[in-house]
């Protein structure tokens, strides 16, 4: 019996190492390629670099204009997050509470779900012509709007369940104390769902940060490129001279999400796995 459980532990350990290797090796390779000097990238490549350099990062940010892409990505993701949260939270609250009636409530709820399911191609062509007519196709606005389009349904659908889980008595008693609906929402309800907001905010930021499909169609000039676009441009042919740059850029693209993982992984995980328990 003892022997069998010992064997089992050893086997589990081996499986664990194998899993970690399969999952993390590509990420390890990304980090490695970004700090490896170019002379060590051709011929026989070693698993551990002989020397370390920051030349790729320096070249990326000073010569290739990656600083602009980083700035664009930060601005676009932040603005779209703030606007989606502001509008999405308000709407989710109304849709979640039975005491608010309006004619289109059911239609709107269903439409929002549908928008969440439909692919970007269902919307992108008329948006392209519309944005061109409005003269904003050469600006950062189309990407911000596209990210809002992605995030509003996500935020609403996610937050509806959070609002529904709040006991109604809290609102009842605040009402008796004479609070207006707005005060009730802003001062009492929102603070209670802060964990939910934190989780969905991280998800939204991540989806906006990673967005590629809308961006590649709705962006014309390089000065509006976001990080995913810039990376796809850097990655031309199978060219070893760009590997260092691509890796440095790829690592940069991972940093904000990595910060979430390090400092707020519980929120992030509860956000990502919410569907499992809630639906």
């Amino acid at each position: 019996m003892m022997k069998k459980s010992y064997l089992m532990t050893a086997l589990k350990g081996i499986v664990g190492v194998l899993i970690i290797f399969l999952v993390l090796f590509p990420i390890y390779w990304l980090i490695l390629m970004s700090i490896r000097p170019m002379s060590e990238m051709s011929g026989r490549i070693s698993l551990i670099p002989g020397s370390i350099t920051l030349e790729h990062f320096i070249k990326l940010f000073t010569e290739e204009g990656f600083d602009v892409a980083l700035k664009n990505s930060l601005i676009n993701s932040t603005i779209s997050l703030v606007l989606s949260l502001a509008t999405g939270l308000c709407t989710a609250y109304i849709l979640a509470r039975a005491r608010f009636h309006f004619g289109l409530k059911k239609t709107m709820t269903k439409w929002i779900l549908l928008v969440r399911v439909l692919p970007p191609v269902a919307f992108v062509i008329p948006l392209y012509t519309l944005f061109t007519k409005l003269g904003i196709i050469g600006t950062r606005l189309p990407i911000i709007l596209a990210c809002i389009l992605i995030n509003i349904p996500l935020i609403i659908w996610f937050m509806i369940t959070f609002f529904q889980d709040l006991p109604g008595e809290v609102e009842e008693s605040a009402k008796i104390d004479g609070a207006t609906e707005w005060q009730l929402f802003w001062k009492i309800v929102l603070p209670l769902v802060l964990p939910g907001i934190a989780a969905v905010a991280m998800l939204s930021f991540m989806y906006a940060w990673n967005e590629y499909t809308y961006s590649v169609i709705l962006t014309r000039s390089p000065e509006n490129y976001t990080i995913p676009l810039m990376l796809s441009v850097l990655n031309t042919e199978d060219n070893v001279t760009n590997f260092g740059l691509v890796s440095a850029g790829g690592l940069t693209s991972f940093l904000p999400i990595l910060l979430f993982v390090i400092f707020a992984q519980n929120y992030l995980i509860s956000g990502l796995s919410s569907g499992a328990v809630k639906e």
């Binding site: 999952v23 590509p26 990304l30 991540m206 590629y212 995913p228 890796s247 790829g250 993982v261």
Partner: peptide
């Protein structure tokens, strides 16, 4: 969880 959090573009390039 880490691979899922990477941008699809970055994954493709790695």
């Amino acid at each position: 969880l880490l691979p899922y959090l990477l941008p699809a573009v970055t994954v493709a390039l790695i």
